[in-house]
Amino acid sequence: MLVVEESTVYLRKVRFQDGWHYVLRESFWSGGGWMHRDLMDLGDDPEAYIVYPGGNGFYFKPELEEALEAKGVQWETNDLEEVFLPFLDPHIRRIVTMFRAGAAPSRWAGCSQEELLEHQKGLHAFDKRRLHYLRCGRVDIGKLDDRPWKFLNVLLEKSRDEIEHVFESMEAQLRPHEVRPYLFTALHLQSYFPQHLLKNQPAALDPEKVDDYFLEEICHLNADPAYLKGLPRRSGGRLHPYLVRYVILYFDHTFTAEALWNDTLRGFIGSRGFYQPPRPSAAMPVPDACRILGISGEEFETMSVRDLARCFKRRAMAHHPDTGGDHEAFIRTTRAYEELLLRKGRSRR
């Protein structure tokens, strides 16, 4: 991003009445917090402001530079290159990226651990948890406040709007089955199940309770002045657009058996410090899966997804390795639940 004396410039995709526009915005320090302002509407194609005279050269149209100067923004060509990098011709982008490799170190490189921790204390817990999942893909996040983490530096010295811009770009890489676990982790919904053995496996929890806690946390966040710092006040208690998109994402996706299996396997491998890739296996027959969960085929046919989850939780707790159970039995139980949950999903279509 463009960094200039307590301000950064970035491109933000914003919806207007006539469609999506790219707006050049600035995060700046004011009144003890980071705020943002619009610098220039670039329309629907930022590349229109890049001129290619020939060869591998390029420059920016004068009106872009004039708009920055009119707003009092100090800038350098290298800084604008970074902002417009995604919109450069692919060949030229590769060249620019190659020359940027090994460039100037991060401005935080010279900070001591104590100084960096002090800077990161100002980051919101919601942001830390979001970034941790996007970086590590883990629901169990551990403690993020006891020491500084380099991966959090990307959020420092940014307005709330620019931080959301960073997350929207990263969230676009999430696969469908990762969306709900991501939001479950970001809102720390596992804290509502402190004694539950499967609190970090949301697909195995009571779905109605998880939904209720999700909405409760979204409402808390919507009223949190620390999260909304630097933004204009909104009247009528309406949900902020930053959070509306998460409600849409949450209810447009589901907790899947694949996510449950991945979380279970990752936790099991991580706790034992070794890795063996899972072997591809054929689908487990329904009668075998029912037998492992201790139910009959007739009972399975009349069960709701919620009843099936309860049945799985009872069996899983009995076999969980952390409570002295057999890990092979626990994995078989999880696979059985995965297969039956998948069958329930197919029967709804």
Rank of each mutant, 00 (worst) to 15 (best):
G19P: 08
S235G: 11
R135G: 09
L205A: 00
L183R: 00
D140V: 08
T302G: 10
H119Q: 14
L80G: 02
P287V: 05
C111V: 06
V286Q: 04
Q113Y: 11
G273Q: 02
F300C: 03
H165F: 14
G236L: 05
V51L: 08
G43N: 01
P277K: 10
A289R: 00
G54E: 01
I218C: 00
D45W: 09
M35Q: 15
H132E: 06
T323R: 12
P278Y: 07
V179T: 03
F251R: 07
D146S: 13
G325W: 03
N222H: 04
A318S: 12
W149K: 09
V305Q: 14
G122H: 10
Y49D: 02
P181N: 01
A318K: 14
P46D: 02
D38N: 12
V51D: 04
E65K: 15
R343Q: 14
A336K: 00
D89P: 05
V247E: 07
A283W: 07
G236D: 02
L189H: 02
E6C: 03
L221M: 09
Y22E: 00
A186Y: 03
Q113F: 12
E338S: 15
R129W: 12
R160H: 08
Q120Y: 11
Y49M: 05
F99T: 06
N262A: 12
P194W: 05
E162D: 05
A226N: 09
H188Y: 15
L265P: 02
G137L: 09
V4A: 14
H320Q: 05
E162M: 07
G19K: 07
L80K: 01
Y242V: 03
F312Q: 02
L2S: 13
A67P: 00
P321L: 01
S106Y: 03
D140M: 11
E164F: 14
K158C: 09
S235Y: 11
P90T: 02
G137Q: 10
R279T: 10
L117N: 09
I331K: 12
I248Q: 14
E118S: 15
E338G: 14
E63L: 13
P194G: 06
V23Q: 02
H21M: 04
P105W: 04
D322Q: 10
V166Y: 13
V73H: 01
P277W: 05
T256H: 09
A283F: 07
T302W: 13
L243Q: 06
